[in-house]
Design a protein around this nucleic acid. Sequence first.
DNA 1: GCGCCCCTCATACCC
DNA 2: ACGGGTATGAGGGGCGCG
Length: 789
Amino acid sequence: MKVTFWLLDVNYEVVNHQPEIWIWGIDDEDRRVLILDRGFLGYFYLIPREGVSPQEVVEQILSRRRDFPLISKVEVVDRRFFGRPVKAIKVTCRDPNLIQRYAQKLRKLKGVRACLEEDIRYSMRYLIDNDVVPCSWHEVEAEEIANRWGVQVDRVYLAKSPPRKIERIQPPTLRVLGFSTIRYSERGAPKPERNPVVVISVATNTGLEKQFVASNSDDRAVIRSFIEFVREFDPDVIVGYGTNQHEWPYLTQRAKRLGIRLSVDRANTEPHTSVYGHVSITGRANVDLFDYAEDLTEVKVKTLENVAEFLGVAGKERIHIEEIDLPNYWKDPEKRPRLLEFSMQNTRYIMGIAKAMLDFAIQLSSLVGLPLDHVGTAAVGFRVEWFLIREAHRIGELVPARTPRPYIPYTGAIVLKPEPGIHENIAVLDFKSLYPNIMIAHNISPDTYLPPDEPTPPCGVDVAPEVGHRFRKEPPGLYKAVLSRLIAVRDEIRPRLKELDPESAEYRILDARQKAIKVITNATYGYAGWLGARWYVKSVAEATTAWGRHAIMNAIKLAEEEGLDVIYGDTDSIFIRYDPEKVERLSRRIREVLGLEIKPDKIYTRVLFTEAKKRYCGLLPDGRLDVVGLEVIRGDWAAVAKNVQERVLEIILKEGSPEKAVEFVRRFISDLRGRKVPYRDLIIWKTLTKPISKYAVRAPHVAAARTLMEKGWELSIGDKVGYVIVAGPGKLYERAKPYMLASYDEVDVEYYVQRQVVPAAVRILSIFNIDEKEVLPPAVADLSRFVKS
DNA sequence: GCGCCCCTCATACCC
DNA sequence: ACGGGTATGAGGGGCGCG
């Protein structure tokens, strides 16, 4: 019989050296299904050395057949490697778990130059070779079999042949469960060996909400009820925030400690950590929304609350409890209800974020071809790479091995020096997808690159300016193939979106799709220059930026020929006076001369530049400010500085009055000195970019982090530390205190005046020759006190 | 010992 | 654990200076 299903998760089992792919899906009648496929074997390739015939290698293997009893086939196949035709020996292996071991031995054979693709996991191998795609619909010829594993599905099938992908974009109705926990410890970070999970709050996309609360510190019932709830609801997707790092490891260890089986999956196993550090829950997709919060660059401190607020899913009444206060709320019977509300609110936030992000996650998964639970955790480079691997398989290009390489820098983009001051009526012209289009136009790719010692092929070459790297014009390289398809699909989606109701399911899905395409398109150049890339070829990245510099320099020249002065530019943009006719002519000329699209991205009524590159502020026609690079949008300045600078920019760009701005700054400084601004506006947040012990210098945020750790808090790479500067003698790092441990009285407000507010304000005001003396209120304009301390 | 200059380290931004 | 280009501030060493 034929089964139509949407692929949710995939794993594999090996029984008696017999591999079995387990495909978890949802069929077109909304049943949960498991499809077993026993018809696929894994393999790897050996590449013979120059001058060695592949047959020789084959015979060596066959002669040692006894050492490799599970090799089922050895054949010579035609492939390409970095674009060059090669004869490869494909070694097929019955047991996928032995592929690595066999490959390690066989790569040492005389006459073998390299071993390839032995590191591609069997389940990914299956998906790629059969063009089976996560979060996509397929048809499969299969027979129903008994559910002798007791897995939690409606039907189990045995596939008779591999599934075939079908074109249907609308996903099935998924059951989504969100959860969050509160762990209790008297002081410092809770430890699963001794501290209980006192609250688990769950919610579902069908509207259920439930809370499991410990009686005192006994959390057995909490965990058991949670497991029961999960099994009862039987979600397809489990969402949380930071669950890969915190909830799941904690719950796993805690359950182990209590002797409880944490069986929340569909196959009676327990959550386990898998590739890219994600936690896998067999038969379901475990999605950690924290992974998707990374893309929200506007949110500087990525707490659940901040992200929910940014996405507009936070609701009006908000409960905020600092982590350090959680124990007090749990201990105090009066306060405990508030804690329970807070926990439920967290889970509601998670559900809200899921609603905003899950469509995108699903489309990214189906585009890149990584299962839904992997794709969020995979770094951008790996997402691009898996996408490329699928394309490479289609065109017979072998996947290079991952190798360590030395870092050799290369030249990037051009940034122009801005003309300081205020400019009126400025258009920002942007090249459309500059690097992707350059890669397409010149067929820049690892498999089209021609090293200097090689002769020019009959098809001819494109030669990059400045650097001289050469690329074959034919056939289309891997990057060109991939990028032109991505851009074509996106161009196809965008007009369709205009026809649709933004509230409709189809709109949401197509919009998510085009966003996923954009992400991968834009990441391809970065991938090309990434040392860790399998297809890393420095010349490819270097040629791309060289042609990019060529493009912007020519655009400037052409603009000037039109009588348009370029006042600023960065990589793929030029800032010019907005003269619609001239701009139109310029776009046309650039298209003709360079073969690249450029168009006005935005028009500024006014734009302000200082001497610095990459920092400016524009006033948009609708009255909004567009702040770029300045303190206003930096996460490592106190809110006092950011707010003042934003207001200064506003006064200057909208009212044109530096005097009024100065007056405002003076008033603000008086308020600050009078401690009339909120305490939270004094917090400075900085990221820990390495383990505490690795820091070469003493720095305020590192000192604050140390203090926290001494008090039993756990901090790791990537965490943000919030601190304030307190009054007293010594360096800043001696006066940085975690904000939750300090009080307003201790704060050195003069630091905030002199080192936060004044520099941020003067950065803007200095273009009117206004210095720090003028923004300090006259009576207390005294630097010496600060300097001495 | 202090102020100043210059360098390195660290962070976060732009595109 | 995607690229290079850039701004900025804190810390710290070296040096002049009665």
